[in-house]
Write a protein that binds this DNA or RNA. Structure first.
Lengths: 188, 188
DNA sequence: ATGTTCATGTCAGTTACTGTCATCACATGG
DNA sequence: CCATGTGATGACAGTAACTGACATGAACAT
């Protein structure tokens, strides 16, 4: 058997969530998190570049899925349709995780430095999408605009998904978001 | 005469710029900055919430000017025109400071944590503008959209201003940016 | 067997940031 | 002219985020 318990990264993430929710983000030290995960502080920083990053482990998966989905699509598709399908793919990734997402949102909303991190993740995602669209042959500035709109629709929908009392699925909300976007853009 | 030399905040800012440019942002400690300004580290943190903030002293002035200019304008003006005039007002605030802005940009571009701060400043500015527009009677989501567009035009123009070899004034660039925005929005 | 790799531990160090109290020029009011 | 704030700064100790360097030992390859 292995020298160390498996999935140390996941254990760190889980420990962090438990402590952040139980005693607050600021009141939780990295040493606390590591201890609860049965590891040392030094090892935490081998898995996460800094304390905030433990709350953003999912964004890499999101970006991967977005780009992979885009690659699967025929390049004959209109740009906005390709973006819609790719964004809906990452929306479906969050299926059944609304409670978790809400808890995470509560933590992030309460701390300015976490919001900073969220903004740069969004900017990175947008830039990656814009670049992928350019690789598909979409010229500038259409690629950047389409990326902005697509990620914008995703985040707006995400906010609704978290706060709306009705529990519609995020994919649905995002789908309708694109309908509305088209309506606004065509001046209806 | 006064017990302390005047303008300690300004001295801290100047010292910070000199050191950041001379020996790099990371290599410069807050103690270094304070010492060069003839103050102590503790006093630095009384003027700036953290080390990064010393590079963002101007954004408060920007926001003030933006909102003040907007208040001066008659509410009969179309929303986009009001936004244009207010944004052009803050663009004129940077007149003659291009060299300084370029140096600052070089520092910010090289450090992810500074970019995070820049993004949240932009988001704050956008939110403040959207709120001011709502106070003028602009309904949602038009207020938020107009704010996004206005600040977007400003930042895109700012980027061109810094990188373009031709030295057109920022106000001009921003003015034309709004023209282009209108053209794109009306489907030309 | 033997060497290598790789995730982790250990430990010492730096630096950003905070709380608390002292100091003392200046203003203000009597 | 004296007493009494007030406000910006200094002094100092402390916490916690983050880093560099080296050690360890199970797993794995040869």
């Amino acid at each position: 058997m292995s020298r160390w318990s498996p999935n140390s990264r996941g254990r760190l993430e889980q420990a962090a969530y438990e402590l952040f929710l139980g005693q607050g983000y600021e009141q939780t030290t990295v040493a606390d998190i590591a201890k609860r995960a049965g590891l040392t502080e030094r090892t935490f920083f081998r898995h996460y570049a800094d304390k905030r990053e433990v709350l953003f482990g999912g964004s890499a998966a999101l970006q991967d899925q977005l780009l992979r989905e885009l690659d699967r699509l025929p390049s004959t598709l209109p740009t906005i349709e390709a973006v819609r399908i790719a964004v809906e793919a990452i929306a479906s990734l969050l299926h059944g995780r609304r409670a978790l997402a809400r808890e995470r949102q509560r933590i992030v909303a309460a701390h300015a430095d976490l919001q900073e991190r969220e903004l740069i993740k969004r900017a990175t995602l947008t830039a990656a999408l814009a670049q992928a669209l350019q690789r598909r042959g979409v010229p500038e500035p259409a690629a950047s605009l389409a990326a902005d709109m697509g990620i914008g629709v995703f985040y707006v929908g995400f906010g609704h998904w978290l706060t709306d009392p009705a529990d519609r699925e995020l994919v649905e909300i995002v789908h309708e978001g694109f309908d509305q976007l088209k309506a606004v853009a065509s001046g209806i």
